[in-house]
C-alpha cells in the first residue's frame, strides 16, 4: 500500500512537471468571455498562420482582471470591456501593440478610433459592441410608448411583479440615475439618496434580479427584463412579441475590445490575431456568432442579412446616443455598494 501511495505521489509530481509547456512558436492562448468566439474564426486563423489556438472563457471583467493582475497566466489575448481597458492600461497590464499602425487598421470605423478608453487605439481594437437596455412584451404592455425607463421603475399595473432586473450593481443604479436625470458615477449624496428611494420603491414590483434574461423571458416567468441587445434578439426569436426599448432617458453602451497582455508568451502571434480580426470578413464572422455589432467598416456585406435589419442592432434615428460609462472612483463605488446592499438586504 505504502509503495502504491508513493508511486501515486510520484505520478502526481510528474503530472505537474511533465505538463510544463514549452511555449512553442505557433501557439496562441485566448482568454475571452465564454461562448463569445466563433469557432470558424479560430479555425480560419489557425489555418492561415499555422498557429495552434487555445480558447478559454471567463464570466466577468473582474474575474479576468483578478487573474491577469497576478501575472503569469500564460494568456496572450484578452477581451476586456471599455472601462476595463482603461483600468488595465493604467495598471500597465496591456502591451502597447500599436494596432493603429497595422495593415488592417484602415477598416476601422473612424467613430471607434478616438474613444476615451484607448484614444487613438494604441492598445486595443473593437471586438463587439452593444447596448444594455430592456426588452418588453408588447402584447402584455398596453401603453404605446415603450421607450421609457418608467416601465422598470414606476411600472403600469400589467407589468408589476413581471419584471426582471440584471443582477448587476452598475446596470441597475445607472438606470436609476438616468431615470431621475442625474449623472452617472455620481458622488452627490442627495441625489444618491433619491436613487436609493426610487430603487427600494421599485423593488416591490420586480420579480427577479438575475443574469439569465433569455430563459426568464422565453419561459414567460417575466414580461419585461433589463437586457443586452444581443440577448434581446435571441429572446425575440422565441417570443416574437418582445421588443427592445431605447429609453429616452438614456441607456448604456459597451464595447469589448481585443487587447494583448503585457506578459504575453506569444506576442507576435497575438499581434497577427489583432490584425486578423480587423479584416471585414473576419469581423463579420464574430458578429454572426455573437450577434452584436463590430466596429469594422465594410463588414456588413459579410453579415447575416437578419442582423442588418434587426431592431436590436439598428438603432432608430431619434434614440439617444448610447452612454459608455467610465470607471467610477472608489468612493463612489463604495456608495453604490451600500445602496446595492441595502436594496438587497
Amino acid at each position: 500500500m505504502t509503495r502504491r501511495i508513493v508511486t501515486l505521489f510520484a505520478a502526481g509530481a510528474l503530472g505537474l512537471a511533465g505538463a510544463a509547456p514549452a511555449w512553442a512558436e505557433g501557439e496562441l492562448n485566448i482568454y475571452n468571455w465564454g461562448n463569445y468566439t466563433n469557432p470558424e474564426l479560430i479555425e480560419k486563423f489557425e489555418k492561415a498562420y499555422d498557429v495552434d489556438v487555445t480558447l478559454d472563457g471567463y464570466d466577468s471583467n473582474e474575474t479576468m482582471l483578478a487573474k491577469v493582475k497576478e501575472g503569469g497566466t500564460g494568456y496572450d489575448i484578452v477581451v476586456p470591456g471599455d472601462y476595463m481597458i482603461k483600468i488595465m492600461i493604467e495598471q500597465g497590464l496591456l502591451a502597447e501593440i500599436k494596432p493603429n499602425e497595422m495593415e488592417n487598421f484602415e477598416h476601422m470605423d473612424p467613430k471607434w478610433v478616438d474613444v476615451w478608453w484607448d484614444p487613438g487605439r494604441n492598445y486595443s481594437v473593437p471586438w463587439q459592441w452593444g447596448t444594455t437596455s430592456f426588452t418588453v412584451d408588447t402584447e402584455v404592455f398596453k401603453g404605446d410608448d415603450i421607450h421609457t425607463l418608467a416601465l422598470l421603475f414606476e411600472p403600469p399595473e400589467e407589468l408589476q411583479g413581471r419584471i426582471n432586473m440584471l443582477n448587476d450593481m452598475n446596470d441597475v443604479i445607472n438606470a436609476g440615475l438616468r431615470y431621475l436625470g442625474y449623472e452617472r458615477c455620481n458622488g452627490n449624496v442627495e441625489e444618491l439618496k433619491e436613487v436609493t428611494e426610487l430603487l427600494l420603491n421599485a423593488k416591490q414590483h420586480w420579480r427577479t434580479m438575475d443574469y439569465s434574461t433569455i430563459e426568464k423571458l422565453t419561459s414567460g416567468d417575466v414580461d419585461i427584463s433589463q437586457n443586452w441587445n444581443g440577448a434581446a434578439m435571441r429572446a425575440r426569436a422565441q417570443r416574437p412579441t418582445l421588443q427592445y426599448a431605447y429609453p429616452k432617458e438614456g441607456f448604456t453602451g459597451w464595447m469589448d475590445n481585443v487587447a494583448v497582455l503585457a506578459d504575453a508568451p506569444n506576442m507576435e502571434n497575438a499581434k497577427l490575431f489583432v490584425n486578423f480580426i480587423m479584416a471585414p470578413e473576419n469581423a463579420a464572422l464574430i458578429s454572426n456568432f455573437a450577434r452584436y455589432a463590430n466596429g469594422i467598416a465594410g463588414s456588413e456585406e459579410f453579415m447575416d442579412p437578419e442582423m442588418l435589419t434587426a431592431p436590436e442592432i439598428v438603432m432608430p434615428a431619434d434614440a439617444p446616443a448610447p452612454d459608455f460609462v467610465r470607471p467610477c472612483p472608489q468612493e463612489t463605488v463604495d456608495m453604490y455598494n451600500k445602496i446595492w446592499t441595502r436594496l438587497k438586504q
Partner: peptide, 24 residues
C-alpha cells in the same frame, strides 16, 4: 476552477457558466 485554471484547462462548469448571458 475559474481563477486557478490556466490556458486550455476549461472544465465543464466553467464552459457552462460562460453561456449564461447568451442563454444556455
Amino acid at each position: 476552477t475559474l481563477l486557478v485554471a490556466g490556458p486550455g484547462e476549461t472544465t465543464l462548469p466553467i464552459y457552462i457558466l460562460g453561456q449564461i448571458r447568451r442563454g444556455i
